[in-house]
Design a protein around this nucleic acid. Structure first.
Length: 838
DNA sequence: AGCACGCCGACT
DNA sequence: GTCGGCGTGCTC
């Protein structure tokens, strides 16, 4: 009954409009008219399907509902309402807006990375044969051929048609076919996410009683195949003990995939009404029952307990706390205890990890403690799996999610705590495409929105974070002891110059390192060799003429990969065969220069032919489970020496590793970048932390370097983070770098170098006019000045934290960038904006 | 980002 | 003259 008091009464009459976030890189919302039938159901954060442009259908998210009709255009109607309950929380919409605003991108771009693509709906134009068509003589030869092809299929997308014919340029033919009504075009809108369905069978109700079942078995004496099916079913389902067990049934695949059971016998039984089929939706994540003893019974050490108490205390007054704990100090236990406490209070917990740490033991441990309350959000997961995590957060099943940087976009609505482990990790920053956000910084904002707390954890905090901690903006808690009785590893610097002089080097290995490896092997312990460069060698060079293999698309040399006998570009993925003769002069003296993990692996096999050597880098861990399997292999002691890139520096915890060898420390230290010192410290410290995690023996770390006197090496050896910090921060202050300033990097790209330079110079001038010459640096070509055939120029903008109105400055920058993009004389120029570039 | 519309070169 | 190339601009 409709009365004046009924809320729906008013809504029946009112015309509503909805401002939508659409997944397009346009910095604006789009206003659509809400069909009356949706008036009471539509909510902010719900997804809708709308017509967009001439022939497209897209999914959008409702950001704002109102009654103001747009004055400048006729609003289109919303086509479909996909969610009764918001799939995106108001907190998220606020966060998306903040990100778009702060990182100078469109909300649509944020939405694009935030939503797993399974939640996005795109229409696909499908082409279907028109059965009523019979004017075949009107068609050209080309059209007839294509129509024949289309006729074979129900319906095809443009791409599929192209593939079938082996020619991509057939759009015009399709168009004329449409014009002649030989084919019909329609838009297929579909939800990409498909729940995983399991087909099951169970006995029909009649046979749930013992008597009827026994009678059945008797009747089947003459039909042994069918009897066998029933017996098998009984062997799998505990009907005897639990009469309800039948309700859960048994996977149909148990019968169909079993060689010695007849499928047809089962289908006959189904036809007879003995069995019935049914379907259940199952989670893609195997359920792990929580082992409550694994969690709360983890006894914190005195040091950990103290850290825990301090964190809780600091949260009283600070929103963010930095936990600075040396490698192996057991930060994870502290995280687990905090998470448990927050979960008990009914709030949600988000636990961020760098990508490569997510496949490690830490997740296994969390799973043990939190069981199916824990959602895992990983980039290697399929889209369907991500949608399940998303929906699990909405439904409340997942109170705690451990995930990579994009997990910050999950639809939490009652966050209590965000943990950012290894907060110094650069993989928290997304570089390409937009939004170029930093998950650690976004976490702090997201937490603010929801009145949650943030715990940053690291053995080697980012200078920025430590600075904030020292000046009181963040709380600071330290863990200076290693967990258990393990002590910090012992360091040895190996002077490769000296070794080379005395001809003791064996290939890339110093005699000291080889000897140490030998001893470690003899003790049956494991070693890790760290070289932060994958591939076989850095590049190929001809000894006669100096020719170097270079990428045809990018301004970098190609890396030699021996295993696949090819040269590869690490920037664009371009591959080439290895030339047999020098392409420059025809000489055979083409040599490899420098070395990568692949080469070290080879050399180790020469030194220690019987040792089991494994390599862990991007090339060996591409497959979904490769990383996990490798880790299990190492844990089980099937690997003696592990060679790896920085991938091995995160979160790996192998008890039996007692030695770490580090190559190329000098290259890390002298990398031409303002953060090279900080990064070298972090990387070497983290890698070293893999050694000696057992109480009964001290780990050893051997660093090969051409100059043993470098200050930074001394600091690493002394585990003197503070010392490194003090020196670096002074330098940052002197040269006006973060955290004293904020950096915005503009990258101008163009296919022609000249145009790229001109556009960059013009932009620089426009910026300097108002911001002053001190704040705008460049333009200068980056280290790699050409990528994917486009020439690049960087402009770096430094803004002082106190003096500059950041917001206004950004608006100004955006304005000038737009000027360049719309400049008729600079056609084809593209500019990307990276706020807080690192 | 897509995708249609529109303005110039090589073919019937 | 037409087809078809890609540059330009818009999407509620």
């Amino acid at each position: 009954m409709l009365t004046a008091e009924n809320d729906d009464f008013g809504l029946e009459e009112i015309t509503l409009f909805a401002d939508l976030i659409l997944p397009v890189p346009v910095r604006q919302l789009f206003t659509y008219r809400v069909p009356r039938v949706f008036n009471s159901a539509i909510k902010n954060g719900a997804r809708v399907v709308v017509p967009f442009g001439k022939n497209r259908v897209v999914t959008g998210v409702v950001a704002h509902i109102h009654t103001t009709p747009p004055s400048r255009y006729q609003a289109k109607y919303i086509g479909e309402l996909l969610d009764d309950e918001p799939l995106v929380t108001p907190y998220q919409i606020a966060l998306f807006n903040w990100i778009a605003d702060y990182y100078l991108c469109s909300v649509g771009e944020v939405l694009n990375v935030a939503l797993p693509s399974g939640l996005k709906i795109t229409s696909q134009s499908k082409i279907q044969y028109n059965p009523d068509f019979d004017y075949f003589d009107l068609l050209t030869e080309e059209e007839t051929a294509l129509l024949e092809e289309i006729k074979k299929y129900q319906s095809l997308t443009y791409e599929e048609v192209g593939k079938r014919v082996g020619d991509q340029n057939i759009n015009h033919v399709i168009k004329s076919l449409i014009g002649k009504r030989a084919v019909i075009l329609y838009e297929e809108v579909r939800e990409k996410y498909k729940p995983k369905i399991q087909k099951k069978v169970k006995l029909t109700g009649r046979y749930e009683t013992r008597e009827n079942l026994m009678e059945l078995i008797g009747q089947l004496d003459k039909m042994p195949k069918q009897q066998e099916v029933v017996m098998r079913y009984m062997s799998q389902v505990p009907l005897q003990n639990d009469p309800y067990a039948n309700r859960a049934g048994l996977e149909k695949s148990y019968f169909t995939q079993n060689e010695d059971i007849s499928d047809s016998a089962l289908s006959t039984l189904i036809k007879k009404g003995v069995f019935e089929e049914f379907e259940v939706t199952v989670s893609r994540f195997a359920e792990v029952k929580p082992d409550f003893t694994a969690g709360i019974n983890i006894k914190l050490t005195t040091a950990q307990q103290r850290a825990f108490d301090e964190i809780i205390n600091l949260f009283q007054e600070k929103d963010t706390v930095l936990l600075h704990g040396v490698t192996g100090s057991g930060k994870t236990e502290v995280y687990i205890h905090l998470a448990q406490q927050v979960l008990e209070s009914g709030s949600q917990v988000l636990f961020l990890l760098p990508e490569i740490a997510l496949t490690t033991q830490i997740v296994v441990r969390l799973k043990k403690v939190f069981g199916d309350k824990l959602g895992i959000y990983h980039s290697k997961f399929s889209d369907n799996e991500r949608v399940e995590v998303w929906k699990g957060v909405v439904s409340g099943q997942y109170q705690l999610v451990v995930g990579v940087r994009s997990a910050i976009f999950l639809p939490f609505d009652a966050l209590g705590l965000i943990i950012v482990d290894e907060e110094h990790e650069s993989s928290y920053k997304q570089y390409d495409p937009a939004p170029r956000y930093h998950a650690r910084d976004v976490s702090i904002v997201a937490a603010q929105h929801q009145h949650a707390k943030v715990l940053l954890g690291s053995a080697t905090p980012a200078l920025e974070s430590y600075y904030q901690a020292l000046n009181g903006r963040y709380g600071l808690v330290k863990l200076t002891e290693r967990f258990g009785k393990a002590s910090m590893p012992e360091f040895v610097l190996i002077d490769t110059k000296q070794e080379r002089k005395t001809k003791k080097m064996k290939y890339e290995f110093s005699s000291v390192l080889v000897e140490e490896l030998r001893e470690t092997l003899a003790r049956n312990e494991q070693s890790i060799i760290f070289q932060n460069r994958r591939g076989y060698s850095s590049y190929l060079q001809c000894e006669e003429c100096g020719w170097i293999g270079e990428c045809e698309n990018c301004a970098v040399s190609l890396t030699y990969h021996q295993k696949d006998a090819e040269l590869r570009c690490h920037y664009c993925g371009h591959k080439e065969e290895v030339p047999k003769l020098c392409p420059g002069c025809g000489s055979t003296k083409v040599r490899t220069v420098g070395f990568g993990t692949e080469k070290l692996e080879d050399q180790l096999k020469i030194f220690f032919p019987t040792a089991r050597v494994a390599r862990m880098d991007l090339d060996t861990t591409r497959a979904k489970n490769a990383y996990k399997e490798m880790i299990e292999d190492i844990e089980q002691g099937n690997v003696d020496i592990l060679v790896g890139t920085q991938m091995i520096s995160k979160g790996l915890d192998f008890e039996n590793v007692s030695m770490v060898g580090i190559f190329d420390a000098d290259r890390m230290i002298h990398f031409p970048d303002l953060r090279s010192t900080e990064r070298a410290f972090q990387l070497i410290t983290q890698v070293s932390g893999r050694a000696g995690r057992r109480a009964d023996r001290k780990g050893r770390v051997l660093i090969q370097t051409g100059n043993t006197n470098q200050k930074i090496l001394q600091k690493i050896i002394a585990n003197d983070y503070e010392g490194m910090y003090t020196e670096e921060i002074a330098e940052r202050e002197q040269f006006r770098y973060p955290p004293f300033t904020r950096l915005i990097k503009l990258t101008v790209k163009h296919l022609e170098q000249d145009m790229a330079r001109r556009a960059a110079e013009k932009l620089t001038h426009l910026l300097m006019e108002k911001m002053g010459e001190d704040r705008v640096l460049g333009p200068q070509p980056p280290l790699v000045e050409r990528i994917r055939n486009r020439f690049l120029f960087d402009i770096l903008i430094k803004l002082e934290r106190e003096k500059v109105n950041f917001k206004a400055a950004k608006t100004f920058i955006l304005e000038k960038v737009t000027d360049i993009l719309t400049d008729k004389t600079l056609k084809g120029a593209d500019v990307t904006i990276d706020v807080d570039c690192l």
